[in-house]
Design a binder for these strands. Structure first.
Lengths: 335, 335
DNA sequence: AAAATATAGGAAAACGCTTTCCTAAAAAGG
DNA sequence: CCTTTTTAGGAAAGCGTTTTCCTATATTTT
């Protein structure tokens, strides 16, 4: 059938262990022998059987990306693949392969993570925040399995994670607006309970206040994620007596709606009303004029997750680490 | 260290082979023994070592999804993850795991596919059209490796593939418009060389013609994918003497721009001008009124890819198959 | 030149399961 | 009640690498 290490050994006139040593970069094989072995590998088109390698080495060189795909149709989340690719890009450099698994249809809590860890089908795991339940966290901590969580886990557990600092994002927004001379600033965000939205508002508010510009409560709007609801909020805010000079939208969808409201009210941007938004989503490309954006580099988040994990795997004594990526301001034509 | 099949065997008072047979559903083990073994597995929290299982069985129960991630920043392609998840959903039911690999940075043509096939790290492969080069096709055909291609390969090779019928999509668009009474129809698409765009136009044109409504050449526009270019085309078309009753947009981005042009010209939809578009993209959710869409279910495309492959793996004598998914019309408020 | 050390490469065990064969006991048949 | 067939489960040989020892030769040291 397929060519094995023994075929190579025979062809090169050495033992199988020598071939193995050549493949694995042992330094105890002479240059001459090494060359002979490599020639045999070439001519026989030998590729080691990964199943046997994994078995013998007790490691798979595979990382699993655990996510909760069906939770709120996460497979439509454009960020997920970008994170995955970011992680893949660095892990593949370390010769890791990455496979995905969904834990949203576990038949008992923690089933997937349990099987992953005990089955030994991978050497490490990246857990997307959407998949991080208490059981997942508990299994990881108990087994001390190499891992990185994407998103700061709210549980108080010794987990490695990478996340974006959304408070800082709010601060960046404020800094930019202040630098441009806007002192009266409004905010349209998601529901009060929304974590990211509230973090961003927090950073924005704090920074405005620090420079002596208190944000008026009536210019801070918590809205449902629905076109008409947002639209009505926008119109109300834009036509109110206390209309702010600039509005911060917590996400692009809100920004699209706001831009539509601005246009319909025949206001001009940024003269009558300036605005900026967070996150570069696909729809940002449809906006005209191009909005100013405080972006989070989700690809980079994946990269960080991958490299944190890779470092841990290369050097197991490494302690628990966490990493926070910085948001990035992209100047547009709306401020 | 970790518990092995021998520990279970000992605990249950049987041999390792018996435990293995119980795990693998052999019918030659008595109910009593089976129960005893299962109890031992439970109490010892035994999970078989996947590396050993793969090695012994000569199969990994893993599928690799080959894609060209860096090619035109495909990691930002929101369809990719959806396809992947669709494939995952069915493969995981067959107990396959799925891992991704990128072939856009191969150091020699066909490197990835060569390693994948010869290394035996997976049992089958799904190749996204973006990753299908001649070398990939050649390697697959030569090795008769179980596979499914996403997208109809233009090469004349005996490959299994799944694809969407874009000509039919164009036909569906025409059928819908005709049913609604629109006989003068225009089209705004990508460049003439764009495969999908031309297929859609073909179906649209054919069907209109068949019902005796020839599309005027000046109402067929090939545009670059750039806001202002598209916008100018839209305005020109909307203000021309021979303005059609309905416009078919080849993608949502064009539709967004068209809608903006319609609004700025104070035309009303669908009375003054009707339109429909292809593909439900994230930005579709920002459009108001909601557009009529001829959608392609990319998740389903992944599902079909997964099940075609799974069937082949369960039944290796199965011949080469191909599958075409049907587009789906979603009625909106613009027609 | 003899003894000590370094070096290159081989033999064989190990990794943890699966699966083929085989045997002893039980069931069926006459 | 004896012979034949069926059934349940065990022994052991893989599966293809890696890795630990170990040995023979080459190299250095005294």
């Amino acid at each position: 059938m397929s060519v094995t290490i023994n075929d190579v050994a025979q062809a090169a006139g050495v033992s199988a262990s020598t071939v193995s040593k050549v493949i694995n970069g042992w330094t105890t094989i002479s240059p001459a022998t090494t060359a002979r072995v490599q020639a045999a590998i070439e001519s026989l088109h030998y590729v080691p059987n990964q199943r046997a390698v994994s078995f013998a080495k007790g490691a798979t060189k595979n990382i699993t990306f655990l996510t909760s795909i069906n939770k709120s149709q996460a497979y439509k989340n454009p960020h997920m693949f970008e994170i995955l690719c970011g992680a893949y890009s660095v892990l593949s450099k370390y010769n890791y392969t990455v496979s995905i698994t969904d834990n949203s249809s576990d038949t008992f809590p923690g089933e997937s993570i349990y099987r992953i860890i005990k089955g030994g089908a991978c050497d490490g795991i990246i857990v997307h925040g959407s998949a991080l339940t208490k059981d997942v966290a508990a299994n990881i901590v108990a087994s001390e399995f190499p891992h990185t969580i994407i998103g700061n886990p709210s549980y108080d557990t010794p987990l490695c994670w990478v996340d974006t600092n959304h408070v800082l994002g709010g601060q960046f927004a404020a800094d930019h607006l202040l630098a441009k001379g806007y002192t009266e600033v409004g905010f349209i965000g998601g529901r009060k309970s929304d974590y990211i939205s509230s973090q961003r508002l927090k950073g924005l508010r704090q920074t405005m206040l620090k420079s002596g510009n208190k944000m008026s409560t009536e210019n801070i709007i918590y809205s449902d994620h629905d076109f008409n609801t947002i639209y009505n909020h926008c119109v109300k805010l834009l036509t109110s007596k206390s209309r702010p000079q600039a509005i911060v939208c917590e996400n692009c969808f809100i920004a699209v709606v706001l831009q539509k409201a601005i246009e319909r009210l025949s206001l001009s941007t940024p003269d009558d009303i300036a605005f900026l938004t967070f996150d570069k989503y696909p729809y940002t490309s449809t906006m005209q004029p191009t909005p100013t954006i405080v972006d989070i580099d989700v690809y980079d988040l994946g990269v960080q997750a991958g490299s944190t994990l890779a470092r841990k795997l290369e050097n197991p004594k490494l302690l628990v680490q966490s990493y926070t990526t910085l948001p990035l301001l992209i100047q547009g034509a709306t401020t």
